[in-house]
Computed example of a mutant assay.
Amino acid sequence: MSKLNALHNDCYFDLRYNGVKFKNYVGVFQVDDLTIEILPKIDSQEKDKKLWHDVLISMLKVTKKLNVQKVGNANVSKQNLHLLDIYFDWFLDEVEKLIHLGLIKQYNRETGNVKALKGKLEFAGHLRKNLIHKERFYTTHQVYNKDHLIHQILGYALAIIENFSKGSSIYSRCKSVQLDFPEVKQVSIDHRTFSRLKLNRKTSAYKTALEIARFIILQYAPNIKHGQESMIALLFDMNSLWEEFILNRIKYSARKSEDHIEVYGQRSKRFWQNVTIRPDIVVRKNEKITIIDTKWKNIGSSKPSTQDLRQMFVYNEYWDSSESILLYPTPDQSNAPNFSSYKNIEHSCGIGKLNIINDGKLNLEVGNEIIDWIKDR
């Protein structure tokens, strides 16, 4: 765990004596057969583990980081099903669909000894390898088969799932998929490998499978080992997830609203030289602009930090906004923003507290509440 954290600039957690203090990342990571799930929480009630497990899955679904329909709601509702299992199930679904449709073949270059001269003769290799075997030719030639980069990526992801799902139902399903999957060469895969992929009309069906494979492979840490143990981590920055969720819900509510409301996310303006500033969400209703900055923490009765207030002041100035909102989650009833004006300045900043739980599940109508806050001003 220490090596994994160091590899990512110690952003996941702090290691303490006989303990771990997690930071603002949520998700799951597995070391050998030990699986640790980190859930988002804004209260201290231990009894709400399943609630926050479901909240995390729902947030990932809304922000398109997870397609729960591909896995099936019956599987997602199981309390003992980890986020890692959901991604594995989703990937296996996609690969099974590709096998059913028919896996594509591609031309690729192959270098080696053949019994007939074809392609380009590699003289140096031919002299080195075939000094005795005069009947062979060492050539580089094109072959048309299923052993190409796309299938090598999918095969690598299947091998990771096989390694991390032993002893579960996913393991037997993975082995079954591997039997129907063609044998491909084992290659080294990193983020540069995915940048070389160019999908076309023929390979467009592979898009979703490759996106999940990218997520699984790049989070796999085969170089971090203790003995024979390897590690995989699927972790999300909760601040970013909270921001994307709120942006998605406000956009959804704005589209249904009869008022003309425009919603933008992460719009940049130059601040100083090449430095830019970007508020999380900008809402425009007619000529009125409201800036929203999301913070995933239970602020309670505390005041926002001076740095946050200064940040909102700058946003108001640069976007000609009359008001801005610091938006926090709360385990209690939602509270509309309580605005306070900056001294001798026309614009103001409010603290909004939003309860995202309704009837024991994630409240998908929070966008309506925020739109109502803005319309009532």
Rank of each mutant, 00 (worst) to 15 (best):
S2D: 12
L7N: 09
N9F: 01
D14R: 03
D14H: 03
R16V: 11
R16K: 11
Y17L: 07
Y17D: 11
N18T: 00
V20Q: 00
F22S: 01
F29D: 04
Q30N: 13
D33C: 11
D33P: 05
L34Q: 05
T35Y: 02
P40S: 01
K41E: 02
S44H: 09
S44L: 07
E46C: 14
K47Q: 04
K49E: 08
K50F: 06
V55M: 05
S58D: 14
M59V: 00
K64T: 02
L66H: 07
N67A: 06
V68Y: 00
Q69E: 13
N73Y: 10
N73T: 12
S77P: 02
L81I: 11
F88C: 14
F88G: 10
F88L: 11
W90R: 14
L92I: 15
E96V: 06
E96Y: 12
G102F: 14
I104T: 10
E110Q: 15
E110V: 15
T111H: 10
N113V: 06
A116P: 00
A116L: 07
K118S: 12
E122T: 09
R128N: 12
I132W: 05
F137Q: 06
Y138W: 12
Q142C: 12
Q142F: 14
Q142V: 07
V143Q: 05
K146Y: 11
H148I: 09
L149C: 07
I150M: 09
I153N: 07
A157G: 02
A157Q: 03
A157V: 02
L158M: 10
L158V: 06
L158C: 10
I160A: 07
N163Y: 12
F164L: 05
R173C: 06
K175D: 00
K175W: 03
V177A: 08
D180Q: 05
V184F: 14
V187G: 12
I189W: 05
I189C: 07
I189E: 04
R192T: 03
R192S: 08
F194E: 03
F194C: 02
S195P: 08
L197W: 00
N200W: 02
R201Y: 03
S204A: 13
E211T: 01
A213D: 07
I224C: 08
K225S: 12
E229S: 15
S230A: 13
K251C: 13
A254E: 01
R255P: 00
D259L: 04
I261A: 07
E262L: 10
Y264L: 10
Y264T: 05
Y264H: 12
G265S: 15
G265T: 11
F271Q: 08
V275D: 12
I277P: 09
I277A: 05
N286H: 13
E287P: 02
E287F: 01
I289L: 11
K295P: 09
W296E: 01
T306C: 00
T306A: 06
L309V: 14
R310F: 09
F313A: 15
Y315S: 04
Y318T: 06
Y318Q: 04
W319L: 12
W319S: 08
W319D: 12
I325H: 04
I325D: 03
I325P: 04
L326T: 03
L327D: 06
P329Y: 10
T330P: 08
P331Y: 01
S334F: 13
F339R: 00
F339C: 03
I345T: 05
S348E: 15
C349Q: 06
C349V: 15
G350Q: 10
N355S: 15
I356Q: 07
I356C: 09
D359Y: 11
G360I: 05
V366A: 07
G367D: 11
I374C: 15
K375S: 13
